[in-house]
Write a protein that binds this DNA or RNA. Sequence first.
RNA 1: GCCCCCAUCGUCUAGUGGCCCAGGACGGGGCCCUCUCAAGGCCCAAACAGCGGUUCGAGUCCGCUUGGGGGCACCA
Length: 506
Amino acid sequence: MTQISAISENEKPIRTRFAPSPTGRIHVGNARSALYPYLLARRSGGKFILRIEDTDQKRYNPDAERELIDGLHWLGMDYDEGPDLGGPYGPYRQTERREVYHEYAWKLVDLGHAYPCFCSPDHLEKVRQEQMKQKQNPRYDGTCRILDPDEARRRVKNGEKHVIRFRMPKDGKITTTELLRGMIVTDNSALDDTVLVRSDGLPTYHLAAMVDDHLMQISHVIRGSEWLPSMPLHVHIIRAYGWDEPMFVHLSVFLKPSGKGKLSKRDTEGAIKDGYSIYLGDMKALGYTPEGVLNWIALMGWGVPEDDILTLSDMVERFDINSLTPSPAAINFAKLDHFNGAHIRLLGADDLAARIKPYYLDRGYPVEDSMLMMIVPRIRERLVTLDDCLPFGGWFFQETVTPKAEDLLGKNLDPRASAGIARKIHEVLEGLPDLAPETAEPPMRILVEQSGYSTNQVFGILRTAVTGQTVSPPLFESMEIVGKEKVLARVRNAIEILEKMPPVGG
RNA sequence: GCCCCCAUCGUCUAGUGGCCCAGGACGGGGCCCUCUCAAGGCCCAAACAGCGGUUCGAGUCCGCUUGGGGGCACCA
């Protein structure tokens, strides 16, 4: 791989970040918001940072940070700096940085770009209602904007409850640049005197994120497109401080599979019913691999010219931030299945064995590694999800199988005829030295020919007898693994079942 | 209601004015392979939202319309 330099166009080292708020479970949207900045950093030899934006205590979920970190680890995205790792620009949890924000907020007040506001929530709400009634845009009415600065400062010192608002210019325009969308011109009159610091002393996203991105030397702010409308505010804040602007990149949202409406929590119930989920924690349990999930989310919003099956390191090699797409993308679970199956097929035998073993262990099967290693190559190309190893390979580990009587019937055959075939099968198999495909298949083919039945009929009966099911890996290879003794016992069991069936058939 | 963003097959996308009667992938259909199910191979159907410009020439540039999405909190 050609290592491109860690210097961005404006000569600054590339540093990207994933800055989630710990409010809920980590889902595919979060994962993708982490992926692209990760890829950019790794591609360019830069740094990737995890920052926890936990300034909203009402929505704080104590388990969320753990799940976030677990999810990142599961997908294989390692970060260079973060709350659990530390780093030169920490702390990386915003609630641990209150003093920093406090200092910077007042700096903005000193600069004349912000002011304390003492309006009560009640007053604000009343103003908003009034504006809505008159079909005006709801916005701050500016009551405290014109307060004398010294007077305002005195009231703050006296402990009066207040917030700090940005002093948005009343007129003029601001021109901002977004990497994927170009220049965006916004009338300042469309912007509001947004709250920067809440009355509880904690900053809002707008202040905290801008301060942190600056202090942490973030070169590319890659985030969801829900932030696009507030980018002008953010640039105003940055310019008010006189800081350099990072490159802004806004990712498109994920739409529900129908393409109608954005993906939401409510859509997950339907998905789970079908064996899918948008939450990383669930996906692992559903048998999805990190490789498959990663490939799936990477390609929704990133146009790669060819060669769709990519591992994380492939992605690092080919990533180009300019080829991200700005339009919303509908998620498609069928494609997830495709990627997952494709990556399972790419796995080495040892690797795949290690990943499916827990499924068998959970079922209480006595797993012998030598047998597991024989099974893996037989079932590998049949697995869409890892837990498919149960239906395809679980029967290998069982002492006996319990086929359904009707499944033992050869196609279009009655119980008597089927039992007759089974007896002949037993006869032939019993006389063989072993059940390797080379020794077992030729005589069985001869049996088929002599019996006058089709291979499907004869092998179908054998398959169900030996595996207990109508779908299985290749018969003869499977029988070799199971062993002659067990195979014969299972065929005898099948004969017994068939003989007990009513003559006309089930 | 106001502001902003987006717009190529059903879905994800390639395409940066002539290489495009638009390419790939998923999904769908067919055939081949075949002991079942897969995997694999081959083939088929399937799109530039509409209307106006600009240009010798437009999927590609501009405008409008339509559609979709996002935002308008002391949430992120």
